[in-house]
Amino acid sequence: MDFDLPVIWLIVILFSITMYVIMDGFDLGIGILFPFVQDKHDRDVMMNTVAPVWDGNETWLVLGGAGLMAAFPLAYAIVLSALYQPIILMLLGLIFRGVAFEFRFKAPEKEQHIWDKAFIGGSVMAAFFQGVILGAYINGIPVENKEFIGGELDWLTPFSIFTGIGVLIAYALLGSTWLIMKTEEQLQQRMLALTRPLIAMVVMALAIISIWTPLAHANIADRWFSLPNFYFLAIVPVLVAISIYSLMRELKSGYDMQPFISALIIVLLGLVGLTISIWPNIIPPSVSIWDAAAPTQSLVFALVGTLLIIPVILIYTVWSYRVFKGKVRHGDGYH
């Protein structure tokens, strides 16, 4: 049997991105929600809920980058160059947020506010520019003779700014539902109160992006609305609607964990929708995964290790989350 290696590699990379969004989305969200919580102890608790787990999260982003280079070197080269400025800004945001997260607990009392601001700024910057990168990517990257032929500021469009805001809101929703799961009493109530408007905003953002994208890109409209595609693909928005409905109900019923799961499902369905729109391109609108794929020798060599090792990584990731399950309270953590 002949394996379609580029397809398998696309799945591996989408899996890395999904893992990254699942694992880093909510902790970026916590940074975004920081301005809405003023109490210092509540802020401590918010940080401590992700303290044990966020370190490994960024490794998925590194794996996504390395995997893209291994499997689709042309896409890695062209997409990253075309999106140079937003990528650099995203990376700087991640640096700021990463160390701010750490230094906050070490800084003298009167310097702590600097690291609060760096934490907020870094999280907002990283999340927003991840969204901008997404929007610019959907908009398409013009390529001729295996070279990027667009301009330095092509990434900056109303659409990409809107997707930037969309991702910001989506991560905030992940963060607020995560905190509903991990905290109690006042902070939890605060998060419940924040989650309702966030859901409304996510619904609006999803709706606008779902209308805007096919309007701007005939090929994407064709993908979704031509028959018989429409019958199969309509299931995605239906599932989104169901997830939003159950998220609302779960909030009312006072479940702790389910809202986070539903929020994750909504965000993941967004990723599925994106994949459907783009398929089979790796550099939309013109370069397919087969055009950009590395030589078979590279694909096979890297895939063997990937398929053998990823399951092991998943096992201990699950294990480390289990070790730290449960609520985090005031006074917990490091001082």
Binding site: T59, A66, Y76, A77, V79, Y84, S298, F301, A302
Partner: peptide
Amino acid sequence: FGTNWSGFSAFAGSVTGPLLTYEVLT
């Protein structure tokens, strides 16, 4: 490597990419 050295990545990513992937994984 991608943002600043796209010529290199497109040309030799088939070698560098798998080696870096193994570094991340192992």
